[in-house]
Design a protein around this nucleic acid. Structure first.
Lengths: 208, 208, 208, 208
DNA sequence: TATGAATGAGAGTTCATTCAT
DNA sequence: TATGAATGAACTCTCATTCAT
């Protein structure tokens, strides 16, 4: 007969999510350049060659991770705009939400922020554009807050945005999920310090 | 005649500095893992095998870069302690000097901060120890400033130190020597914002 | 038609045995140190990189050859003990069987005896231990034969064992399968001469 | 003045013997194929390239070692012929002298016997011819002793010679200068056992 | 869908040898 | 005589990718 014998149930679940999860783990641990597809396949429990039923290349794997992260990031932007009326409160919300998101998805978000540079061609352009948008979003909030006299005007918003992003971006190099602080605590400190760094200077406060 | 008879003048100068410079360039541009010694050799203008007259391994090249950077970093720490009396002023000096150093040696310092993780064995231990010392230095200044009531006490110094280092650490991802701002300007902004982020909070300043 | 439509039939059989056989040939002919995996791959008809589907390193190839040879050697020891009652007869059997084994597997046994030294780490220890066991086996038979007054007592059993092994060990340097003598003939001569060299001396026989 | 200043005495002794000695050490320890000229140069205390003032190639170094050993070997042959009247006594002398020579020059003689195969072209032919002569010398003594009814006639002289040489040849794999036995003791045992192995068989001696 | 064999390019590294100085 | 820089070929090993089965 041509029908499959029922006895043997081959594992036919869709392995895409598993592969993506494994790739996230490996790309995070080793970095994209040093990661090998064999590592990914080993985690999934499949042979290297078999991955190509789900992906078309190593780079595509990276691209998918970045695309998905970008969607989440975009959602956070929108939510932040919706959450408050003033740009300063929107910024506060955005920083806090983003930090929480980062800390609770440390592997994938690290990849999004730090390994996207390995993409090529259009995908590289796309991820770069997204990075610029991310940066522009923060800068525009700073700009608007500034025009409402809520924050200091003596620092360039572009540079300020880069420094703010940088502190965030670097969290994955030191944060340990099993460490002393919860994502909420760290996100709180990050948000507080960042806003303080933008605050209107009060004469004689910490100056020399 | 006094001129050399043969047309082709082969360069017989010591190429160690050239090789180090080329390695710094390549490791910075591609990252250590993705960088190849062929890239380095191409820049120097020799075959990759010829590099081994000057180095014993690719890793050793990386180690040399890190060791030299560490020396400079240590000097800055000492200078900062000598430069002022209060921990807050010492911190200010340290942040400013370090930022200037980073911005004017962006490639090598980037490697020191971000690629040292690729070292192995004792060298890895060493670079990790150095990283902890760097962090401990900042934290201890924060601790002492705190005990003198000069800065806020509501954020954990460890986390604060990590965020401060993170912003610095990440500069290499966005700074362009041919950009709008000079190292001095950026270092100034970085120092100002960082100190502001540690300042004693003034009620009602930027809070919701 | 029943025949395969495409002209070129690619061999999809498991090539492990082929690779082992090729390695034995190459390691024997050139010595392990001078042998290259390209030689092995050429014989098998694949690219050298392809060998790594079957082996994990050149050394592992050598180790496999040695392990298999050791098994055979151990079997011969056991068979020899089982084959006779007196240590002298056991020795005779052992020498004869071992010589036959060597002569009919000249390449692999040569490698086992002479190239195992290139192994490293635990594998080197193992092959050294095996060598000591081989030596101890012969020496113990000599010891026991001596205590039964069957052989001479004026030569040290350790040195005697080394010389006996040495003559055997060296066969691969001169034996040619297509030569004048069969393995059986050579093994017979080897056994006879060796036992005679251990015989109780008869006064005036060949002495000065 | 054109004369050399006397103060600085450059080491101008002829380094040929040193280089040869170093090569012997290295070739013995690692085997010719795995030995590198850098090892040799390191021992001499000179740079790799400088060796080429004394040698024309790595192979030539090996050739010199073999040539010198061959001279010594030839001398022993002649001395042995001169030392006694009967072939059996000549053989005894030869085996003993050769064993002593081997044991007291273990490194160079090991190379002569075991590494000469790495030579190429005419030099390889030469060393092979020498090996054949060595073998032929022993075989002819056995032949002559046989025709005088001094030794057994039931083993082929060619095979016997190979086995006798083999035991000798292999000494370098186990002899340690700091071991239990002196060269004289080992040479004595070797000679005794070898002659016993050639003795006329006495019925019932060690046979089953 | 999954395998496993194979590819081809490229990695880091070693080495005998050459040669201007 | 000796140096030290450089070569070029070979080496072991890794990897993304392909494809017949």
């Amino acid at each position: 007969m041509a029908t499959r014998p029922k006895g043997r149930t081959i594992d036919r679940r869709n392995r895409e999510p598993e592969i993506l999860a494994a790739a996230i783990e490996v790309f995070h641990k080793k970095g994209y350049a040093a990661a090998s597809l064999r590592d990914v396949a080993d985690i999934v429990g499949v042979l290297k060659g078999s991955l190509y039923h789900y992906i078309s290349s190593k780079e595509e794997l990276l691209a998918r991770i970045c695309v998905e992260s970008h969607k989440q990031s975009s959602m956070i932007m929108q939510e932040s705009l919706d959450s408050a009326d003033t740009p300063l409160d929107q910024l506060r919300t955005f920083l806090h939400k983003t930090a929480i998101w980062y800390l609770t998805n440390i592997e994938r978000v690290h990849i999004y922020f730090n390994e996207g540079k390995w993409l090529t061609g259009d995908r590289l352009e796309e991820v770069r554009t997204q990075g610029r948008e991310f940066h522009a979003f923060i800068r525009s909030l700073i700009d608007r807050a500034r025009s409402e006299d809520r924050i200091r005007t003596d620092v360039d918003p572009r540079v300020a945005a880069q420094l703010i992003i940088g502190a965030l971006n670097n969290i994955s190099t030191w944060y340990r999920p099993d460490g002393l602080y919860s994502p909420e605590e760290i996100a709180g400190i990050y948000t507080d310090m960042t806003l303080a760094s933008l605050a209107n200077p009060v004469p004689g406060l910490v100056s020399a």
